[in-house]
Design a binder for these strands. Structure first.
Lengths: 331, 331
DNA sequence: CTGAAAGCGCTAACAA
DNA sequence: TTGTTAGCGCTTTCAG
């Protein structure tokens, strides 16, 4: 009895009804008696019937699945979003297709095509590149953006990046920093712009001016930060006493460069990171950092996509998730 | 021209051939003239034809996709495997369906069913629970196991866990440890057993005996380790001078418990972890740990699955990936 | 070398 | 309330 797959025809036959009726029951479309329903449901269970998703997809052009595109699944921030989304959608019987673009536009393009080929009913696009062109090409499927806000986006959810930058600046100023330094991703994504703006505004509020070399722009990783800070230290000495980096790995690189050059953190230089990756809690000293609420972001995005898919009205096109400062030992 | 999807019929029509011929060309089955091939290929490109995967799946019962099941995508170790697999399979035009079982047997069961429903051509199962029953139920699709070796497995790839444990024990002994302690996952998975065995064998080689309370068994996370070690320290004092934990988070918990109790690492107690997560490099002090070659594991698994899917002969049923000790500052 | 046609499993008119 | 039936887009014999 485990030999062949049972189809809707088999169910119909053994239940003594038509395939249409079985289909109605399976999809809970109503228009059948309580009795037939019970009968059909019973035989379905009996013979272990599972609808063939390909046949359904072929007929309906829907897949009951959504795609999630992240630039790096290896990054805890994205991994958490993916996980939350996965758990969210399974509740609604949607399966999620995860795809790691690996920061590679070509790969990303390919993955997106792949998802369209699979007839995803919707897409969640997390902080990707600008190669959104191919997304827009397909107006059939709704797209929700996390952490990135292209024009014409149907729905965008982002952390309150401005507030994050502001909190970082405020923390530094209140703890007595007088010569602040900003280290940021050289690519000026909108999120980075907002963090920067918030930071500068906080400084201004405390009467700090932003002198000449107060800003370093680099690749946003540990190594770049460490090297660049070491170099900076070598050239100009420690002409700053507080640093805000636009992510935690850069903060860590900075901490280590400082430590190796013999400076004390937070004694001589304070540091605030961004993201609150678990590393920031366990490094030495534990890092003060701006924490994003990944779970909330994912949930909001999931809910919005679901509405878009169901063509329910959506009250707002944008959602800003609150952010908070996790104060630890580098400030 | 962007209005409707073009099907194989459209291509056939405009190319002036039959759908059968188009199909043959698309699938490179041969049996057509160079000329028709060129003509068909050209019109395919011309009108942007993309085969409908549902129709193909419905006909062939194959999906050209494989499933990957991990217990926690948020864990760097698994995320890396997923990413490598993804990149590997895309080369062969297979798409990979990632699923995070979230250490939840019910969710896992559901995800697996889902994958079968989607007609995955193969499955890679990474260090999951024992709920493999449902896997075995479906003898149609080949399964490759990573980091777990159930009986009857078609193919298993694992790190050389025994060697890992051995290296940890040796390192401790050579650096002068006399009272070793083992802290391990309370669940005795085969991988943990092997690490333990290797560790004990190394100790024996150096004439160390394993006295009474030399082994602590806990949940394998930071918090459990930290609490348990603190408690242990409180009850018996520091009756050990070297610790091997079966993963890095436990090692970190141990380090922190020790630090808080005022013990010096590695001065009074040495520590060796397992996994080489990036945290182990950045914590304080940077941790000596046993490094698994995740990339190699993923690649071997991917290659094996591909062979299984293609029904090519497979020379061995098991593959052991070398491991090495990353010596840092806790030993 | 090429085409005609059956049918994979399901849904959705339309009829009854 | 239920059944009949025509496809969805593709592969795959079987004929030619």
């Amino acid at each position: 009895m485990e030999g062949k797959k049972v189809s809707i025809v088999d169910v119909a036959k053994t239940a003594g009804v038509s395939t249409a009726t079985v289909s109605r029951v399976v999809n809970q479309l109503g228009g059948y008696s309580k009795e037939t329903e019970k009968k059909v449901l019973h035989t379905i269970k009996e013979c272990g019937f599972r609808p063939n998703v390909n046949a359904i997809g072929l007929r309906t052009r829907r897949s009951h699945s959504v795609g999630v595109i992240v630039p790096d699944i290896t990054n805890e921030f994205f991994a958490k979003i993916v996980r939350t989304l996965d758990i969210f959608f399974i509740k609604y019987n949607y399966s999620v297709l995860i795809c790691d673009s690996n920061e590679d536009p070509e790969l990303e393009e390919r993955h997106i095509q792949d998802m369209f080929d699979k007839n995803v009913d919707g897409l969640i696009y997390v902080s990707g590149m600008e190669a959104i062109s191919s997304l827009v090409k397909n107006p059939r499927v709704p797209v929700v953006f996390i952490d990135r806000s292209p024009k014409n986006a149907e729905f965008v959810v982002q952390s309150d990046n401005y507030q994050g930058g502001y909190l970082a600046g405020k923390e530094l100023c209140e703890k007595g920093c007088t010569r602040p330094l900003l280290i940021r991703d050289y690519r000026m994504a909108s999120t980075i712009q907002q963090r920067r703006r918030g930071f500068l505004d906080a400084l201004a509020e405390y009467g700090k001016t932003c002198e000449g070399n107060f800003e370093i722009t680099i690749l946003p990783d540990y190594k770049s930060a460490k090297e660049k800070v070491a170099e900076f230290l070598g050239e100009k000495g420690c002409c700053f006493d507080g640093v805000f980096t636009t992510n935690d790995m850069m903060a860590l690189g900075t901490i280590h460069a400082l430590a190796e050059a013999g400076y004390n953190v937070p004694g001589q230089v304070m540091i605030v990171g961004f993201d609150n990756v678990s590393l920031s809690e366990f490094c030495n000293p534990p890092m003060t950092t701006v924490a994003q609420d990944t779970e909330q972001m994912a949930l909001v995005a999931g809910e919005a996509l679901l509405k878009l898919i169901r063509k329910e009205p959506i009250e707002q096109k944008e959602y800003v998730v609150p952010i908070h400062l996790e104060v630890r030992s580098t400030t």
